[in-house]
Design a protein around this nucleic acid. Sequence first.
DNA 1: TTTAATTTGTCAAATATTTTTCAATCTTGA
DNA 2: TCAAGATTGAAAAATATTTGACAAATTAAA
Lengths: 288, 288
Amino acid sequence: MTIREMLIGGDLSLTPSEQRIVQLLLSEYPTSGLGTASRLAKRAAVSDPTVARLVSKLGFASFAEFQAELLAEVEKRVHSPLHMMETKRQPEASGVVPEYMASVETALRQSQSLTPLAAYEKAAQLIMEAKGSVIVLGGRFSRHVAGMLSEYLNQMRPNVRAIADLSASSFDTLADTSRKDVVVVFDYRRYQNDVISYARQAAAHDAKIILFTDQWLSPIAEVAEVSIVSGLDVASPFDTMAPAIAQAETLVAKILAVSGEKPLLRMQRLESVRKENSITLDEPVSSQ
Amino acid sequence: MTIREMLIGGDLSLTPSEQRIVQLLLSEYPTSGLGTASRLAKRAAVSDPTVARLVSKLGFASFAEFQAELLAEVEKRVHSPLHMMETKRQPEASGVVPEYMASVETALRQSQSLTPLAAYEKAAQLIMEAKGSVIVLGGRFSRHVAGMLSEYLNQMRPNVRAIADLSASSFDTLADTSRKDVVVVFDYRRYQNDVISYARQAAAHDAKIILFTDQWLSPIAEVAEVSIVSGLDVASPFDTMAPAIAQAETLVAKILAVSGEKPLLRMQRLESVRKENSITLDEPVSSQ
DNA sequence: TTTAATTTGTCAAATATTTTTCAATCTTGA
DNA sequence: TCAAGATTGAAAAATATTTGACAAATTAAA
């Protein structure tokens, strides 16, 4: 079992600052762990002892031992046949389309290793246990992902609201925000000031923040309860939102898995209403 | 110039014990250089100061600096696309989260083989050459994908409109629809009557229809100029929209690739406006 | 609200690493 | 052989890193 797997699948209960370290380790794996413990601590904005406590929690006797293990992993990778091939040139995948698709696939896979499983669990819990509202919002592109997530969440619990556009009046909602509310924010590279501002203010009102962001971390991460992190690197001037969607949907799947009957019942009720009004077609029908 | 190259091509005159160190560095590159200087010295059977003298001869101010450089090299290698591949398969994908993610990956790959490359080309052409408007719409979930696509298209050409919600008044737009317009429709399983109806009417007005749908094909396929088809099978009561996003983005990438400068210029203009109004942050900044 | 428990950082002690100094050793050429 | 210069390691000084003890701060619970 590699250290990465320990960090992702970790069934350890980690404290917030420990999670910060884990996040850093994962997003720059394994190099961020190969310097000194102090440097790691500084970069994760925690104190040296916190790093020491984390490695001991992970089952290592000392930071040195942890690092030795990490180094052994690097050794193994560097000598793997795959790595040997790296010197050879990769045959150019022909055409924009397969290339882009392949890069999305890479981004998706990368995303899986950037977010510890516990993050989904925590997020699911926060959403389903929120006594107040669940507010969902995002940036220029990601707000569409936010919209989709709110569509899903609406099926599973009441009081879910999506903020489609951060106009001045949207900020009014902050007045009623309290510790009972959960704010789900999507903020990816080209982090938007209005989104950041909204999140910060919501946090100041003690609302719980769930953040979806990319590997470079939106500043909102500082105030977020949970961060779900994705890799975005693709062959285009735009970043791909596919990992974001996948992660949002994964959260939905997780919620369904942990919360049993209740959301399913609500969904069935909503579905029967839809059928009554013949909004959906169950089977494709041919026209004429 | 990498450290390895420096060590190999070395135009430095090295003493015998320095050569021993170099040899060790090369034979276990780069890991042997990632521990402490003392350990390296011990392994090369030289004294600590000898190592210090070598790194200074190589032009580094200190061993720490030398190691930082080495670490940067590792970072670069580890982030190469080929290496990413290695990260891929988690053998024991237990639990909802990895399972869902894996199924999204499968759906994505499946989607790549369901749509001929020519479809993207045709779609790109239709969109960029449309003399009239480009209208983008979708169903309950897919309308969010539609929203995102319209966001992208807006960057690249004028007269792009997203129909967020198919209310009665949205149907009014059909009155002005003509053969000069292009309608991009997203319609996935649980095909929606209102969406189908809109698309059929637009087709009747001779608008060109580009359809995004799933492998079971929306009835709109019958009237569409181009169909971009995805596989949706996932481990959840809901279907995943990730392939839809990926395909929409791929289309955007294709458009950028085929239409050269023009959309890029428009994008840059829009971007500079955004910066003027400080809507986006280019770098994450820390608060406090 | 207050209290208890947890988390986290500060400080300091212990440890380790790096680097400097310097003397011993080796090499080379007369 | 000897001496000058280069090379090297031992020891100690300087520096840095890690870790333990404790108290402040935060969070959760009553």
